[in-house]
């Protein structure tokens, strides 16, 4: 069992000693049931930390954002940040370490095991409660979730409420941590890996095309998926023609000659191009936190585009993202025995 008191105590100690600049964790939400990210700088705030299946956010994102903020503000505080990290969050940290985006000394990882459980999918919860608002959500053993509402408490099967990625997750514990809360539960998954992917991948080609066309048609290019992704930390996105990075060294030519790989018009092909480029750029880097899919306002199953490459990385190249910060990246490495039959 994860004892939230232990996490709070650790956070308090870290803040009291001044070892860390801040603690990134979860606190009770101000709107609705879901926990929200907390950025704690005072020891007494540690008491507000929570841990339950509504701690959905990937806090690695906030580490990345904080780094960006610090850079623009030219802050000299070199102390690390402490981060509460679930399994997927910790794998995101591993990728960030692998890409030198963060240094190990910049982060204190308070690893939290999901202990075979996971976080809920808010859409599934809304559906299960038929629109009623939940007040509390807690794991009840490994297979059930206790949901409190204004009209009382009900217990629902975990498989009905957990996010798809959690149902499929086989490693629901932190890969890398300084302190670990809860037990490492091995090989505990509700559905087979890539189950959600397979429901689409197994459709015939024509249906797949229709399925994705419909989704790409609906994309409003709000770039929420990109904004929420801890791996999309570039200052300028190669697909974006709206925000250009301009430094003192940027030449007039460079300013004038931005490549417009994708037009801004909300055309299905342009949107498809955006999603495919994003998927390619996340190949071997996406750790399947599925935040992109959660934040999509028009319910595009963005996660599956990343999943398909994650599966190929695993099956064709035996590459699992977020396991070892010392390894070269999926696309900056190869093996002589990589698949060759597809080449003519």
């Amino acid at each position: 069992m994860v004892a939230i008191e232990d996490i709070r105590a650790r956070a308090r100690t870290l803040l009291e000693s001044g070892e860390v600049r801040a603690v990134l964790g979860y606190q009770r939400g101000s709107a609705g049931t879901l926990a929200e990210p907390a950025f704690l700088t005072e020891p007494q705030q540690a008491a507000s930390l929570v841990w339950d299946p509504t701690c959905i956010h990937n806090l690695a994102l906030y580490l990345v954002n904080e780094k960006k903020r610090q850079r623009t503000q030219r802050s000299n505080d070199k102390r690390p940040l402490a981060v509460v990290a679930k399994g997927c969050d910790s794998r995101a940290l591993v990728v960030l370490l692998q890409e030198n985006h963060i240094d190990r000394s910049e982060v204190v990882i308070l690893g939290v095991s999901c202990e075979g459980g996971g976080v809920i999918d808010p859409r599934k919860l809304t559906r299960a409660l038929a629109g009623r608002a939940a007040t509390t959500v807690a794991m009840d053993g490994a297979d059930a979730i206790r949901v409190g509402t204004a009209s009382g408490e009900t217990t629902l099967p975990a498989s009905e409420l957990l996010a798809d990625r959690c149902l499929e997750c086989a490693r629901a514990y932190p890969e890398l941590y300084d302190t670990l809360y809860g037990d490492k539960a091995e090989g505990r998954s509700y559905s087979p890996r890539f189950a959600a992917l397979n429901t689409v991948a197994e459709k015939p080609l024509d249906e797949r095309r229709a399925y994705w066309n419909a989704h790409f048609e609906r994309c409003i290019r709000c770039y929420a998926c990109r904004a929420v992704c801890p791996m999309c930390y570039c200052d300028e996105c190669v697909v974006d023609s709206t925000e250009f990075v301009v430094t003192p060294n940027t030449s007039a030519d460079e300013k004038a000659n931005r490549i417009r790989w994708i037009q801004r018009s909300p055309d299905a092909s342009e949107s498809a191009m955006y999603h495919l480029v994003r998927a390619m750029h996340l190949a071997g880097r996406c750790i399947d936190c599925a935040e992109c899919e959660r934040v999509c306002p028009v319910n595009i199953p963005v996660r599956l585009l990343n999943n398909v490459l994650e599966r190929e990385a695993l099956e064709a190249f035996e590459y699992v993202p977020g396991t070892d910060p010392g390894l070269p990246s999926l696309i900056s490495s190869f093996r002589d025995g990589d698949p060759n039959d597809f080449v003519r």
Partner: peptide
């Protein structure tokens, strides 16, 4: 290299 865009991820170094 465009320094303004390089994040130092070292993928090019490996490749």
């Amino acid at each position: 290299v465009r320094d303004s865009h390089c994040t130092g991820c070292e993928m090019c170094v490996d490749a």
